[in-house]
C-alpha cells in the first residue's frame, strides 16, 4: 500500500495561501500562516508553491531529535510529536530538507502536518486544484503523463 502525502502543482498554484489559513484555523483555532503546517513560498515574479511534510521514508527529523520526541508511524507514514518530550530545541527544523516543521511561538514545541487523519483539509479548500493528496506512484504516473503529452505534441 502506497502512502499518500500532500503535493502542490506550481503550474496551478496562484499563491493565495488559503491552504495555510485553513490549516492554522483547524489546528490552532485562529488564522495565522506562521502556525500553519503547510507553508507557501512565492518567488517573484511567477513561481508559487505550497509545501507540507513529505513523509520521508527515512526521516532526518526523527533521527536528529535529541529527546526522541519524534516518531514515524510505519503504517501511515505520519511523523508524530510527543509534546511532553519535545523541548523546542528545533534541531528537527534545521534538519528537515523541505522546511515544513514549525516551532509554535507560545507552546514552544514543534508541529508537523498530520494529514488531518487521512483527509487533509487544505486540499478541500484549494481554489485552483493545485494541491493533491497522492502517493509516490500516483505522482510519478502524473509526471509520466505530462512527459507523454510533450512527446505526443512533438510527433
Amino acid at each position: 500500500m502506497h502512502r499518500r502525502f500532500i503535493v502542490s502543482d506550481p503550474d496551478k498554484c496562484v499563491g493565495c495561501r488559503i491552504c495555510g489559513l485553513v490549516c492554522s484555523l483547524i489546528k490552532e483555532k485562529g488564522f495565522n500562516p506562521l502556525l500553519s503546517r503547510i507553508r507557501s513560498i512565492r518567488m517573484e515574479p511567477t513561481f508559487n508553491i505550497s509545501i507540507a511534510c513529505c513523509l520521508c521514508e527515512d526521516p532526518t527529523c526523527v533521527k536528529s531529535c535529541p529527546k526522541s520526541a519524534l516518531s514515524k508511524n510505519m503504517e501511515t507514514g505520519i511523523i508524530h510529536v510527543n509534546k511532553d518530550k519535545c523541548n523546542g530545541c528545533a534541531w528537527c527544523i534545521e534538519s528537515c530538507e523541505f522546511g515544513t516543521i514549525i516551532l509554535h511561538p507560545t507552546k514552544k514545541t514543534v508541529a508537523i502536518c498530520d494529514l488531518c487523519v487521512g483527509d487533509p483539509k487544505c486540499i478541500q479548500y484549494c481554489p485552483t486544484g493545485a494541491l493533491m493528496f497522492v502517493s509516490t506512484e500516483e505522482i510519478s504516473q502524473k509526471t509520466r503523463e505530462k512527459l507523454f503529452k510533450i512527446f505526443a505534441e512533438k510527433l
Binding site: 485553513v22 490552532e28 485562529g30 495565522n32 479548500y125 481554489p127
Partner: peptide, 25 residues
C-alpha cells in the same frame, strides 16, 4: 506581524468559505 487573527464562529465560517470557494471555481 506575528499575531493570530481570530473569528467568533470559526467552524461555521469555514463551512461557508468552502461554499464560497466552490462558487469561485
Amino acid at each position: 506581524g506575528s499575531n493570530t487573527i481570530t473569528v467568533d464562529k470559526p467552524d461555521e465560517l469555514l463551512d461557508l468559505c468552502a461554499d464560497l470557494i466552490e462558487r469561485c471555481r
